[in-house]
Design a protein around this nucleic acid. Structure first.
Length: 281
DNA sequence: AAGAAGCCCTGATAGC
DNA sequence: TGCTATCAGGGCTTCT
């Protein structure tokens, strides 16, 4: 379940291979992922150089020499694997039936970058040469939590007046970019805030705690190479290990490390929320 | 208009 | 053992 730390881990794995390299050939093994590939997708990539590989929220963005941007989302189960040119065709180390896209990169020893995605919740898109921030995927997206524009003040401002539970507000990519179920649960635990608390009541001291908790949990998770629960692996197949440091996520029925209470689980807007009723208010 | 629910998709797992 | 039901949850669409 790639959230910001997992996507950042993938970006760091891909950038040494892709930045500065050209697409020699692009293989599409099916007409769509979650959405159809954009028109002439392979043709528009072939010959282009990757000037930079960035990330916005949970999206990977390759800026191309053609002026277009290749926008990639891992969905739930998307995985990129890198193999050098001479290695055998079984690229991803997982079921090759789900190897949907292969980028053959030159200037990188003809490395192959394979996108495998069993559930096909991932997608790829090309944005025109217009500014990225106004593109369909990024218009209205909230601040990068590890960027300069994210502060306790901007978080508070985004939460003010919101009647939804804080859990739902933090999952909303318009409030803050890149958080998913895992890191929202973990950040709320660290900030000692109940996921049920109305978002509008957070600004103030609670908002400062929450801001700190979000930044810290994301930094630690990136340092740990992300979290590998069911699907996630880095481009070299390595598993992240932040899942071993979860305080609440996937720990239903276990003891809270802080107060000794029981970690409980309930469904909030259709998704599992994990929290400690003893010390999260 | 904000908020919630439904949808997509497959693999792992639980339960019979 | 082998079948079926359930769950996982990104973001988008639809409904209230």
């Amino acid at each position: 379940m790639p959230e910001l730390p997992e996507v950042e881990t993938v970006r760091r794995g891909l950038s040494p291979i892709m930045e500065g390299a050209h697409f020699a050939r692009v293989e599409l093994r099916r007409p769509d992922l979650r959405f159809p590939f954009p028109e002439n997708f392979a043709e528009r990539l072939t010959g282009a150089r990757v000037d930079a590989l960035g990330r916005r929220g949970k999206y990977l963005v390759a800026s191309l020499s053609t002026g277009e941007h290749l926008i990639m989302h891992l969905g739930m189960s998307g995985r990129f694997t890198i193999k050098a040119g001479a290695e055998p065709a079984r690229d991803s180390g997982v079921n090759p039936n789900h190897d949907h896209v292969v980028f053959h990169m030159r200037d990188a020893g003809l490395a192959r970058v394979t996108f495998n995605d069993p559930r096909r919740f991932g997608f790829m898109d090309l944005s025109g040469p217009d500014r990225l921030e106004t593109s369909r995927h990024f218009a209205g997206m909230g601040p990068e939590p590890l960027g300069n524009e994210f502060s306790a003040e901007t978080l508070n401002a985004a939460l003010r007046g919101r009647k939804a539970p804080i859990k739902a507000a933090l999952l909303d990519q318009r409030v803050i970019a890149g958080l998913g179920n895992i890191y929202v649960c973990e950040a709320l635990y660290r900030a000692r805030l109940s996921p049920r608390r109305q978002a509008a009541t957070v600004p103030g001291m609670r908002g400062e705690r929450l801001h700190q908790a979000i930044v810290k949990v994301l930094r630690e998770a990136i340092e740990a190479g992300g979290s590998s629960l069911r699907d996630f692996a880095a481009t070299d197949g390595a598993l992240g290990y932040f899942q071993h440091r979860f305080d609440v996520y996937d720990r239903e029925g276990r003891a809270c490390r802080r107060c000794g209470g029981d970690i409980s689980r309930f469904i909030q807007s259709g998704r599992s929320t994990f929290f400690c009723g003893g010390c999260q208010r």
